[in-house]
Nucleic acid binder design. Sequence first.
DNA 1: GGCAGAGGTTAACCACCGTTCACACTGTCG
DNA 2: CGACAGTGTGAACGGTGGTTAACCTCTGCC
Lengths: 199, 199
Amino acid sequence: MTSQPDSALHSDAANPSRREQILRAAAQLFAERGSRAVGVDDVGAAVGVTGPAIYRHFASKDAMLAEMLLRISERLLAGGTERIAAAGGSPAAQLRALVDFHVDFALDNPALITVQDRDLGALSDPDARRVRQLQRSYVEEWVAVLTRLHPDASTAACRARAHAVFGLINSTPHSAGRLARPAMAALLADMAVAAATAR
Amino acid sequence: MTSQPDSALHSDAANPSRREQILRAAAQLFAERGSRAVGVDDVGAAVGVTGPAIYRHFASKDAMLAEMLLRISERLLAGGTERIAAAGGSPAAQLRALVDFHVDFALDNPALITVQDRDLGALSDPDARRVRQLQRSYVEEWVAVLTRLHPDASTAACRARAHAVFGLINSTPHSAGRLARPAMAALLADMAVAAATAR
DNA sequence: GGCAGAGGTTAACCACCGTTCACACTGTCG
DNA sequence: CGACAGTGTGAACGGTGGTTAACCTCTGCC
């Protein structure tokens, strides 16, 4: 989205720009200790520069966090929309698609998941509003699917159900590493589907 | 545990001591903003005193957090042990007892639940170790029950399953209030059991 | 060659916050 | 009545940490 049209410098994945390096290192540190406990110097040290160098790439520490959270929310929302569309019309298939997507995302980005629901409160008011709006949209995608699966359940119940499933899948960071990735993915997905369809 | 043997001052629930008031207010504030974002002055103001007055009741801000987290962990572990013992020998009944207990606890103490898994990292090393040990014991109670329910699953898988169920139930704070308490309790318990027994 | 601009560095500034201190007030007990 | 313990207050101290400023060094380009 913010790609410079001309400069083909720093390809995204293999040779990430300093800016991307910083965002990644910061996400890791924020997840481990909480954004408020991490100093600008810590983030700098993690990418091999001093603290103030950060300000060549970000306006402030808060701006880093804001960009981080905005990106996650956007990726989740976009991914959810895409997977639903690709899953056909069956609510069960759509649920499975959403679950698989979210499980993959959580296993691929445990740090981002952790930061997202721990440090949302550290955002400035307008940034927090924007993130919450994106999150809400994503939740509503789940609610729509869950409502079709549970036709006589209230919207509030479906929303609570969606949050509970998120909590289940997002528990990954707390128990990561003990289980091999494919086994963990299968386990979480099965549990999530069972929880989403229970009763 | 720290009850003065003689003074029958300040009964626990109805007329809580200043110390208890502070702990409750702090738990609420810590849950809302994160312990590092809450000042001693904020906690004081919440109970109608100035910041430094806190130090008449606690050695430090960290000591408040430590006591808070230690108490939660102890209550969870004790409650779990008790409910398992009272549930008879059937693994299914024991699971149901654990689920109901944890759901009640989470619905009764959303703030404590939030603080527990967000601010553990802010504890001093020895305090954190103690809390983690208590948490681990509690988790192992769940793992024991889950292992009997899934005889051919690995311990690691059962542990991941336990964490996932905690994540599901502890999602309460994020979606509280939208649903009436009994409905929420029933929904969460059913989802938790379904997730715990899936596959 | 020299200019410009990107990206780093060190030092300094400043606000915030946990903590301590000296003092005041209030009740109880001898 | 006076001592004293308990609790609260406002002021001050000190460390931490985000942010800024001034300066330095490369690199690409006209």
